[in-house]
């Protein structure tokens, strides 16, 4: 059983394509454009890049700079450089409690997505990969929530599942009483003054509803590509189902695993909509909410503080993002 293969079987199309290209090896170093082509080329690169950098990267940089200032957002001349004061307030000062709980919530979300929807999605993919009759119908059922926004997921769950009097969750688990699913901020378990609150768990369930189908589709696509012959020979070798999965299927899914890890981490860091639509119940705030609340609106008394949160969020993401992206393109570069 060949494991640790860097060129996963899954990218058959690509490897075939690139080897075909290698055969006709005619690599260009730099295209020598002339006249009009040169202008067209510059526009092709320049316009999209300008927009992207202006919308994403320059503001990101400015956020980092603003995190070292105090500003109410009025006159630009009022921006006052305060050094690390915002970080002091956010990490060690009055807002430390909020920050810790928010980061913990982001962490719960991450762990939950890994151990809930990811495992379930992988399991479903495995089952649906078994040449079942009606597999497409099952797939559609699990996949449908994926096309909805998390905002509308929150809206629907609040109404149908978590209505305090009539919701289905209340009906199923409330024993005839009203249940405050989304308002109950008590911790299920706590670490000091922090913990995992009941209402946050309720929101996690709604998120799982959407995330599971997503993971399922990704794994299903990966599993389809595993050579049936490979699996057959594994079962002929006397591997039981678990061993086949563990030693044959799972290793070939490595690229999917990478994507799932990336998606899950990113999702856990940028979740915002569902909690915002539910009016940000106490103890469910994520870093994205602390950032936004301190930045926008009348309550935004200090853009510097919001930017400090934004910078924390950025630091949590960027290493991961760069690792993934450079890795991906390095691999690409090698193949072409």
């Amino acid at each position: 059983m060949s494991t640790g293969d860097d060129q996963p079987t899954i990218s058959t199309a690509e490897t075939v394509a690139s080897s075909a290209l290698d055969a006709g090896k005619a690599k260009k170093k730099r295209s020598q454009f002339t006249g009009n082509d040169r202008k067209v080329f510059l526009a092709m690169v320049g316009i999209p890049t300008f927009i992207h950098v202006a919308i994403v990267w320059i503001p990101t940089l400015l956020s980092i700079l603003l995190s070292f200032t105090k500003w109410r957002g009025n006159d630009i001349s009022e921006i006052e450089v305060t050094g690390v004061e915002n970080y002091d307030v956010v990490l060690l000062g009055a807002f430390q409690g909020d920050t810790i709980q928010a980061i913990l919530n982001n962490l719960w979300l991450l762990l939950f997505l890994f151990f809930g929807p990811t495992l379930l999605g992988m399991g479903l993919a495995y089952l649906l990969d078994k040449n079942l009759k009606g597999t497409r119908i099952y797939q559609s059922l699990f996949y449908t929530p994926v096309v909805l926004s998390l905002a509308v997921v929150g809206f629907i769950w609040q109404n149908i599942m978590y209505d305090q009097n009539y919701g289905l969750a209340t009906w199923a688990f409330g024993g005839g009483d009203r249940v405050d699913w989304l308002g109950n901020q008590e911790f299920i378990f706590s670490i000091g003054n922090y913990g995992l609150s009941k209402n946050f768990l309720a929101i996690l369930m709604a998120m799982a509803w959407r995330h599971t189908g997503y993971i399922m589709v990704l794994y299903l696509a990966g599993m389809k590509s595993v050579d049936a012959a490979l699996r057959e020979s594994a079962s002929l070798d006397g591997c039981n189902e678990w061993q086949t999965f563990r030693h044959v299927l799972f290793p070939t899914l490595k690229p999917i695993n990478v994507i799932v890890v990336v998606i899950t981490v990113i999702e856990a860091l940028r979740a915002y909509d569902i909690i915002a639509i539910l009016n940000e119940p106490r103890n469910t705030e994520l870093l994205s909410h602390l950032t936004t609340n301190a930045l926008i609106g009348e309550g935004a008394d200090n853009i510097g503080r919001g930017s400090a949160y934004a910078t924390l969020l950025f630091l949590l993401c960027i290493g991961f993002v760069l690792w993934y992206v450079t890795n991906h393109y390095k691999k690409q570069e090698n193949t072409v």
Binding site: T60, S63, L66, G73, T292, L295, I303, A310, T311, C317
Partner: peptide, 18 residues
């Protein structure tokens, strides 16, 4: 490409204030 792809993965809240 790294610039574009990485930019796409960042949370929107990071750049909203500017």
């Amino acid at each position: 490409l790294v610039l574009f792809t990485a930019g796409n993965l960042l949370p929107q809240q990071i750049m909203v204030a500017p």
